[in-house]
Simulated scan of single mutants.
Amino acid sequence: MKLALFLTFGMSLSAWERLGLLERELKPYFLLSQRGAHTTIFSYSSYDCEFEFASQYQVKLVTLCPLTGRSNILWLKFIESFFVGFYHFLFNKYDILRSNQIFGSWLPVTYSILFSIPVIVRGGYELHSFWIRSYSSSIRHHLSFLLSNFVYSHASCIELTSIADIRYVRRFFRPTAPLLYRPNWVDTDVFCPQHLPKRYSFITIGRLTPQKNHYQILDSIASLNFDFSSSGPILFIGSGFLKKDLQAYADSLSIPLVIIDCVPNSDLAQYLSSSLFYLHFSLFEGHPKSLLEAMSTSIPCICLSSNRVHDLVRHNSTGFICRLSDFSSLVNIISDRSDLISSVGSNARSFVVSNFSLSTRIDTLHSDIKFFSTFC
């Protein structure tokens, strides 16, 4: 069985490597190859290292932008990627196509129409909903709606990582293709409890953008009567344009803050296990991988109340949920309750292992590919 996987528009294996995501993203396809499902990845980079990364995980690679791969001119990438991909499909056959994200899924959907191949449209987040909340531009809103409507209308099936996104698509797009709940996965063998000395008081992982609400994290921590000399500094792991401003703001609040740009995904478990609390303050999310990874290591997770958080965290059972006004009192209470922290951490670990493990995800991914390549 031959699977063609299309990366997010503009994304590449070298970018995944730079962001520390290469192993996490390619491991499922390496495991699929051992079950007879062989993957070819369609990437937007022209760097030679792309082929080295692909061979490490026993996948093949097609470069969609051999001429514009190192260019930042997106419309040239858009045009070249279409014709390079079209030429490739004239001489190569696949059993099924799959997008890694909705932004970029226009290529596999178009080739699905032209060459009569089933296509799975996968979204780690629902593009139209995300862009409405992220950008004020009405042009972006309309473009995301048109793109989403196009790919949903022609998909053989649609995979989304959260029930809320599935409801959103049903309400605003009403696709005829099956909508499948396929949450993000965690390598629970890597993200497991480690008994390490605590070097950081609070940790959060995510891009340094307004969506992740880092300023509110700093404001909330400033309200605590916390002894950082004994518990350690705050740790932000992620890159983004807010880095310098966040560091300056933390200094103005006299909060010791450490920011690490990028960490290989497999190394995150060590940082999580070296921290007292994980904070999840995002304004909106699809299906937060970093929160699941933190829960899998049994670190106590404190989350701001939101619809998406309640899908994953049960207060005082698998984590802690609070309003901003209750954050200070919650931290003070649970800091003195080692028994509660232990039971919540254990419950969170069991919840992730039972519902979001890599082995479970590989089973469903293989079944989906086999089913839709056969019956669509």
Rank of each mutant, 00 (worst) to 15 (best):
S220T: 10
A4R: 04
V353K: 01
E285H: 03
A164P: 08
S14I: 13
K370E: 07
W185Y: 15
A348K: 06
L26C: 04
L246Q: 03
R170Q: 08
V263Q: 06
I41A: 06
S136W: 14
G104M: 07
N184G: 15
E52A: 05
I79H: 05
I302T: 06
Q101E: 09
D245E: 14
F351C: 00
K27N: 01
K27H: 00
G10A: 12
D311Q: 14
F375K: 10
S129D: 12
T63I: 00
F356N: 11
G20V: 09
L127M: 11
I341A: 01
S12V: 12
F241E: 14
R171Y: 02
P108N: 13
S55L: 09
G69T: 11
N347I: 07
S373A: 13
I120L: 05
F51H: 11
L340V: 09
F236G: 00
L268W: 07
S325F: 05
H38W: 01
T209F: 09
E50M: 11
D219K: 14
S254V: 11
C262P: 00
V344M: 08
G85P: 10
I96A: 04
G240F: 00
W75V: 14
F228H: 07
R314A: 14
L292S: 06
P288R: 08
E23H: 13
I203H: 06
F103I: 15
F277A: 07
F375I: 15
N332P: 05
N347M: 09
Y271F: 07
I299W: 01
T8L: 11
G123W: 02
S338K: 12
Y249Q: 03
R323D: 13
F371V: 08
S112Y: 01
T176N: 15
V169R: 06
L304W: 12
C301H: 12
A54S: 10
P288N: 06
Y135K: 11
L61D: 01
P233Q: 01
P233F: 05
S359T: 10
E25A: 04
P264K: 07
F83T: 05
V353S: 03
P197Y: 04
S231R: 01
F53W: 10
H88V: 00
S33W: 04
D267F: 11
V313S: 03
D267P: 06
D339P: 05
N72P: 03
S201T: 14
Y168T: 15
H280S: 02
L74G: 12
R24T: 13
R314P: 02
F86V: 11
V109K: 02
V84L: 10
V190G: 00
N332Q: 10
C301K: 06
F351Y: 09
R133N: 05
Y200Q: 01
I341R: 04
S153K: 14
T40F: 13
S136E: 15
S282K: 08
L127Y: 15
L13N: 12
F226Y: 15
S373M: 10
D336N: 15
F130H: 10
G124R: 03
H366T: 08
E52W: 09
S342L: 11
Y44N: 03
S162F: 13
G123I: 03
S46K: 02
D165M: 09
S116K: 15
M295A: 03
F103A: 13
H128T: 11
S223Y: 13
F53G: 05
Y200P: 06
L196C: 12
T161Q: 07
F6Y: 14
P108T: 14
R24C: 00
Y111K: 09
F173P: 02
A269H: 09
V121W: 08
S305G: 06
F241H: 14
L3K: 01
L257F: 05
